[in-house]
C-alpha cells in the first residue's frame, strides 16, 4: 500500500516537473527573436580567464581590453551546436562590417586534450579569420568555465569506444564589454540577425 502511495507521489512529481519544463520550452518558443535576443541570465558572472590563444600566446581578459569580446565554450569534435554557433558568429562579424573591428569572437575549448593550439587555429580560421580559439591546461579551462559559470563534462557515447567521447557544455554566448565585464548573455537558438541588431545597439551605445 505504502509503496503504491509512494509510487503515485513520485509519478505526480515527475509529471509536474516534465510539465513545467515543457511549459518553459513552449514559452521560450513563443518569444519573437528580438525578445529572445534580450534574454539575459540574471546570475552575474566574473568572466576571467588565463588561456593560450591559437597562435600560442598566453592571453587573459585584459589582452582584449578596449574591445568587446563575444565568447562561447565548445570543442572541435562537436558535430552540431558549435559549427552552428561558429557559422552564426561568422555571419555576425560580416554583418557588423567596420564595427567588427571593435569585437573579438573567442571560442574557448572545453576539450583541451584534443583541441591543441594548431588544431584550434585551423578549425576556427575556416569559419572566420577574426575568430580566436583559446585552449589551455585542464585546470586553465576549468577555471575559465567556472568564472563564466559554464558547466561542461565528458560523455562517452559508446563504452566500446571511449576515445570517441563527446562533450556536453553550456552553449550560451557572452558579450563582454571593453572593460572585460559582462554586458549580455544569450541563450543558444537566438536568431543570428537578432543578435546582429542587439550587438550593434550595444556598440553604438558605448
Amino acid at each position: 500500500m505504502i509503496f503504491r502511495a509512494l509510487f503515485l507521489v513520485g509519478l505526480m512529481t515527475l509529471t509536474a516537473y516534465v510539465g513545467y519544463k515543457g511549459w518553459k520550452m513552449y514559452e521560450f518558443n513563443q518569444l519573437t527573436s528580438q525578445e529572445r535576443a534580450n534574454i539575459l541570465v540574471a546570475t552575474p558572472i566574473e568572466g576571467k580567464y588565463s588561456l593560450t590563444d591559437h597562435n600560442g600566446q598566453r592571453v587573459t581578459e585584459q589582452t582584449y581590453s578596449g574591445r568587446h569580446t563575444l565568447i562561447f565554450f565548445g570543442y572541435t569534435w562537436c558535430p552540431d551546436v558549435c559549427p552552428t554557433l561558429l557559422t552564426d558568429i561568422a555571419f555576425i562579424m560580416d554583418e557588423l562590417g567596420e564595427a567588427s573591428d571593435k569585437v573579438v569572437p573567442l571560442f574557448i575549448s572545453v576539450d583541451p586534450e584534443r583541441d591543441t593550439v594548431s588544431v584550434l587555429k585551423e578549425y576556427v580560421g575556416e569559419f572566420h579569420p577574426g575568430i580566436v580559439g583559446l585552449t589551455g591546461s585542464l585546470d586553465d579551462v576549468a577555471a575559465a568555465a567556472k568564472s563564466f559559470r559554464v558547466g561542461y563534462g565528458k560523455v562517452v557515447m559508446d563504452p566500446a569506444d571511449p576515445e570517441d567521447y563527446s562533450m556536453s557544455h553550456s552553449a550560451d554566448l557572452f558579450l563582454m564589454g571593453p572593460d572585460g565585464k559582462p554586458v549580455k548573455q544569450y541563450r543558444f537558438g537566438v536568431d543570428a540577425e537578432a543578435l546582429v541588431k542587439d550587438i550593434q545597439a550595444v556598440l553604438t551605445d558605448g
Binding site: 541570465v41 552540431d80 551546436v81 552552428t84 558547466g151 561542461y152 560523455v155 557515447m157 563527446s166 556536453s168 557544455h169 553550456s170 552553449a171 550560451d172 541563450r187 543558444f188 537558438g189
Partner: peptide
C-alpha cells in the same frame, strides 16, 4: 538537448516518425 543551460548530446535510440507527422532534423 538543453538541460539546465547545458547542451547535452544524447544518442537517440528509437527515433519514431509518427503517422501524419514529420521529424525535422535541424541544427540544435
Amino acid at each position: 538537448k538543453m538541460v539546465d543551460g547545458v547542451m547535452k548530446m544524447e544518442h537517440a535510440m528509437h527515433v519514431m516518425i509518427k503517422p501524419g507527422e514529420a521529424l525535422t532534423m535541424e541544427p540544435g
